[in-house]
Write a protein that binds this DNA or RNA. Structure first.
Length: 330
DNA sequence: CACCAGGATCCCT
DNA sequence: AGGGATCCTGGTG
């Protein structure tokens, strides 16, 4: 699905900005490949958080079909060799580099164009990461900043990460840890608790910490992704401490088709008709969200059926397996 | 076998 | 009290 692999790590530089040059091959590969689940260390450069960031090729790749929620930049067919123009993502107060006063050679101009492209791609990646962290926060009902997590939040995040990246169960090795404990741990500490995947987990946590730091720096950017589909999510998130209802959760999944269309999707959005494509997967997601490891589709569907009486969800006129309909479509 | 329907009960907030 | 989880019986394709 066109998910980018992690051919690049994003590291930070203080000014002046510098971008590593990538060959067209590596850039294309970055947009296409996806095979490992291990994000590079410090790829958002949390600890320094300088701007803008430098993209450097990296052998580490994130994303497989399941973890594409985290780093997806494109959806659908393979992207063109050069990404389309996008607004540049800058921190407040940061201005674009001044136009050059001197005459440039063709190669210099080409290099500048490439830099621009990279800058745009990295903006896109960062934006997507921020959105995906947001989505996970909404679905798990946790704050974006790991420092503020309770032990329960830490366990939720661990379960979520394990599930998404198909990691072995490690949450039991991080019990009794709150977010602050987790953040104070070094990579070696993580490896000590899980020799095989501790570093992976550490890297994922680092991404979250980076995203949280970024939110603090650019709170306006954070809320700007409010397109049509996010307006509904906002309703949910205005009450962050309210327990989410199943129908809300399903709708949230449906409103993130680029993340969840393989497990649940609209058949007719206008009529509110949707189909659960992977019942077990949706049930697992709901179980994680509710801290109910024993959740399965049998129980989830029973809860859906409770909505029949309440007039929230019903079976469509032509009843089909795994197909339901919101009585009041958005 | 997986899905569907609905009753009953328990737990939590 | 309400929402949801759980367990159950029975039906369908």
């Amino acid at each position: 699905m066109g998910s980018p692999g992690r051919e690049h790590a994003v590291c930070t530089t203080q000014s002046p900005p510098c971008y590593s040059h990538l060959s067209p091959y590596s850039r294309a590969a970055w947009l296409d490949k996806a095979e490992d689940v291990k994000p590079p260390r410090n790829w958002l450069g949390f600890s320094e958080l300088g701007w803008p960031w430098t993209l450097i090729p990296c052998d580490d790749r994130l994303t497989n079909e399941e973890n594409s929620w985290l780093l997806r930049t494109t959806e659908g067919p393979a992207p063109p060799p050069h990404p389309p123009p996008l607004p540049t993502f800058r921190t407040p107060g940061q201005t674009a580099p001044p136009p050059s006063q001197t005459q440039h050679s063709a190669s210099e101009v080409e290099g500048q164009m490439e830099e621009r492209c990279l800058e745009q791609v990295q903006s896109m990646v960062v934006g997507e990461v921020m959105k995906d962290v947001d989505t996970a926060c909404k679905l798990l009902n946790i704050a974006p900043d790991p420092l503020s997590w309770s032990c329960v939040h830490v366990q939720k995040w661990l379960l979520w990460t394990e599930h998404l990246y198909k990691l072995p169960q490690m949450s039991t090795r991080f019990q009794e840890l709150c977010g602050r404990d987790l953040c104070s741990m070094t990579e070696a500490d993580f490896r000590h608790r899980s020799s095989q995947f501790g570093d992976t987990l550490y890297a994922h946590l680092d991404i979250w910490r980076s995203a949280a730091a970024l939110k603090q720096r650019c709170p306006a950017e954070d809320s700007k992704s409010a397109d049509e589909e996010d307006s509904w999510s906002d309703v949910v998130c205005h009450f962050p401490n309210q327990p989410i209802h199943l129908w809300q959760f399903l709708r949230e999944l449906l409103l993130k088709p680029h993340n969840y269309s393989r497990c649940i999707r609209w058949l007719n959005r206008e009529k509110g008709i949707f189909k659960i494509e992977d019942s077990a997967h949706v049930a697992r997601l709901w179980g994680i969200r509710k801290n109910r490891p024993a959740m399965n589709y049998d129980k989830l569907s029973r809860s859906i059926r409770q909505y029949y009486k309440k007039g929230i969800i019903r079976k469509p006129d032509v009843s089909r397996r795994l197909v339901y309909q919101f009585v009041n479509p958005v």
